[in-house]
């Protein structure tokens, strides 16, 4: 499959958002800054991704998957810019817009895995899952969940601590919250209470989220 032009990708993206998230049936050509004879439109129509009826541009069934993937790449790019490279605000948005067009041939899968298969973009909109996300979910069924996902009475082995704050990590570790130790949840509200060895500890949501448990 030949690679779409950046402009065509932008059009697909806008269409997908309009149809999937704003519940519209189509977009006005003028809203997309397009005129009927445009290069971009010809490119999309040649692939049967879109269709013009009157003033409006429609997303065809054939183009839906490709459109979804462009949205996914855009939102992954936003995550990468803002979370990892720490480029915030308008600058982050602009960089993401340019960067998304480079995320082809498996690069998006790599980035998605690097970002640990995020489900939402920094603006809170959902990121359409790719094949890698589904696979990770299937593999993760046995796997590791934050302490907050356990209910009282459940227990497991501490898999890892996710805190990025050194002090928090050291505190947890000095309380015996170390990978490999068994942990039993006693209570989850109003604070989490768990038992490690013969000691009980109370921690709040924020700390509980950092403790990841492998259930058995």
């Amino acid at each position: 499959m030949s690679k779409l032009s950046p402009k065509a990708e932008e059009v697909l993206e806008s269409l997908w958002v309009a149809v999937e998230e704003l519940d519209r049936v189509a977009c006005l050509l003028t809203d997309l800054d397009l005129t009927p004879g445009d290069e971009t439109l010809r490119e999309l129509e040649a692939l049967a991704y879109t269709e013009i009826r009157g003033e409006r541009l429609y997303l065809r069934k054939e183009g839906r998957h490709e459109a979804e993937m462009t949205v996914r790449r855009h939102r992954l790019a936003e995550r990468l810019m803002m979370d990892i490279l720490d480029i915030q605000g308008e600058e982050g948005n602009e960089q993401a817009c340019e960067f998304e067009h480079l995320l082809h041939q498996g690069v998006d899968t790599k980035i998605c895995t690097l970002l640990n298969h995020p489900t939402t973009c920094p603006h809170g909109k959902p990121i359409p899952p790719g094949a890698c996300c589904d696979e990770a979910r299937r593999a993760g069924e046995v796997g590791v969940v934050p302490l907050t996902e356990l209910s009282s009475g459940q227990s497991g082995e501490i898999a890892y601590l996710a805190a990025n704050d050194d002090k928090k990590m050291q505190k947890l570790m000095s309380m015996g919250v170390l990978p490999g130790n068994r942990l039993e949840v006693i209570q989850t509200y109003p604070t989490y209470i768990f038992k490690v060895g013969h000691s009980q500890f109370a921690v709040d949501d924020a700390l509980a989220r950092e403790i990841h448990i492998r259930q058995r």
């Binding site: 928090k168 505190k171 947890l172 309380m175 604070t191 209470i193 000691s199 009980q200 500890f201 109370a202 921690v203 709040d204 924020a206 700390l207």
Partner: peptide, 9 residues
């Protein structure tokens, strides 16, 4: 602040 506390018997 974060909350953690040992609960003695």
């Amino acid at each position: 602040p974060m909350f953690y506390m040992e609960i003695p018997p």
